[in-house]
Nucleic acid binder design. Sequence first.
DNA 1: CACACAAATGTATGCGCATACATTTTGGTC
DNA 2: GACCAAAATGTATGCGCATACATTTGTGTG
Lengths: 350, 350
Amino acid sequence: MAPEPGTRSPRATVYTVAERAGVSVATVSRVLQEPHRVKEATRARVLVAIDELDYVPHGAARSLAYHRHEAHGLVLPELSGPYYSELLMGYESVAAAAGYSVVLLLSEGKDDVGAALRRLAGKVDGIVIMGAADVPERTLTALRARVPVLGLTRNDRADLESFATENRSSAEELTRHLLDHGRRRLVFVGSPDLAIDVRERYEGFVAAHDGRPVAPPLPADLRETEGGRVADLVLSGEVEADALMCANDELALAVMDRLVDRGLDVPSDIAVVGWDDVMTARYVRPGLTTVAQPVRDLGARAAARMHDLIVGSTGDPDQHTLPTTVVIRQSCGCPPAGTEAQHTAADTKE
Amino acid sequence: MAPEPGTRSPRATVYTVAERAGVSVATVSRVLQEPHRVKEATRARVLVAIDELDYVPHGAARSLAYHRHEAHGLVLPELSGPYYSELLMGYESVAAAAGYSVVLLLSEGKDDVGAALRRLAGKVDGIVIMGAADVPERTLTALRARVPVLGLTRNDRADLESFATENRSSAEELTRHLLDHGRRRLVFVGSPDLAIDVRERYEGFVAAHDGRPVAPPLPADLRETEGGRVADLVLSGEVEADALMCANDELALAVMDRLVDRGLDVPSDIAVVGWDDVMTARYVRPGLTTVAQPVRDLGARAAARMHDLIVGSTGDPDQHTLPTTVVIRQSCGCPPAGTEAQHTAADTKE
DNA sequence: CACACAAATGTATGCGCATACATTTTGGTC
DNA sequence: GACCAAAATGTATGCGCATACATTTGTGTG
């Protein structure tokens, strides 16, 4: 049936199918678009022809005539860590349920993101961008002239509708938790100007101090490799702290790893908390106290909203914010709960 | 310039641009396709018009005329864990470098994968499927009648070209390593009939025994949630073992977690090893001995090969196998190496 | 300055489908 | 059986682009 892999026979078209079924191309098309409008017997003949010819409609031709690509463009920086994957899974499931495909574009490391974005804009009905802040205004304008655009994570462009997770109040809650443990020399690890999210977390951190003096943030990228450096600053006494609030889990885990390795005890000597609730957070000892974000849901909602925009339903643009959850484990100083308890947040498998 | 977000002006086309630049549509098209064939001055005028109108070519129209979608279809079961993400990143980077998009389809949980696959086949120039084994022969035939198809991970269809990582010999190597540690009651955890990869790992496991009696595999899904159950079988004595070779890291980590939680010491009481080298593997104590796969490279190579198939370069179909690496940490019984040593495999960030 | 030839640009067509509109068939009804 | 509306099907067109082919413009030579 697939005679010579490589010797692909000329692909079937509506014409081929129509001829074989003894009908017109319109009927073939209708069998696929509005089956109920075709008489049972005719429909059956057409379906047989389609099956026999292995007919698959040409997407581009359909898009051109139908005035829709039936595809979403999703732009993410990259895919390391569970964060983006979850987001993507949430997004894809909603898009696919509506019969739309997802065209993925990873922006990090690309030399000409602008060109890639424009090309993308010509192939999809709408674009959701994480990190729209990094896209030149000019490019964004061109994109928006063609398709609706949504942002992921908060951004400065007031006119760009976006979806993000809550940062400030959760950060404040987590910080207060550390203060309640009697910690007094809290240090925020991560550069607030790296991303709006980080800045907001830092703002919550500051807010929780209720006017008490706050140590300046300890600048660091949000990557595993920064952990050693940060930990060494603490170990050498260069940075004084009895609790580290890291901007994400990767950083927190790496810091904690090094601290423990060098003989410190977490949390008795120093508490460490993170942000994201990655899988590792519940496997390390002590379990990492952190903040869980409804990432999958974030993706799903963005997809749903984009679909609305594509099909034309209005609804006013908005800056959507999804709530997060503080996940208490032991790295903050809390005693181990029941064995299973620390796995509470594990329902989103990773 | 984007006046009313929502009041999108009628999109520019080649005609609009041509008119504005005072040239014919052919010239506009040529400016984009073969710039060198257009006189400098004319080209500049056209480019200005394009810029002023925020013109972005209509992908479907281009695809239709150009006889190519300039897109790859990539089908993965899902995206949890670093495995698929890495693969996807490797794939995307190569595809994007060639100016092609990647249309992602996640098969797990979809009720009608067949329909989704067919739709995909109409929108891309080639499809790479992980888990092609689960696709009905009939569907696969239809796909292959339209576009080239590649498999990821080994599969039974001899006629389907595919890319996979090596399993058998690494499994054998890892097993011998456990035997060298003096372990004698090794048990393989995971159902060999779950996937060809698992089967091959089990075969390597068996081969390493050199004819000595081998315990039957302990059936289990390759998921975190199975860990508790498996560990309990060991703890209750129902399964006797001094070393567990788990089919993947998720399983291994969950098993180890429970064992340690119940008071056993890993590795002195029992050794545990996994497969995949996920991030957590190097953060847990003891560090998890496992097998690292060149996943990113796997994706990149598959993309490169698919691109060749799309542009028509032949080269005989082949079953490509990429080598894996045993990563020794402490869960197998080895002493901790230099602090940094256990992080050796960490260069692929996660 | 006439000519040949190359470079630059324009004209016309088809890619494969969806669909508005035209035509034919069907099923009732009196 | 004649007539009419509704159902079923067919015909013709355009979506926006790339490109083969036709035409015009430019360059160099004798």
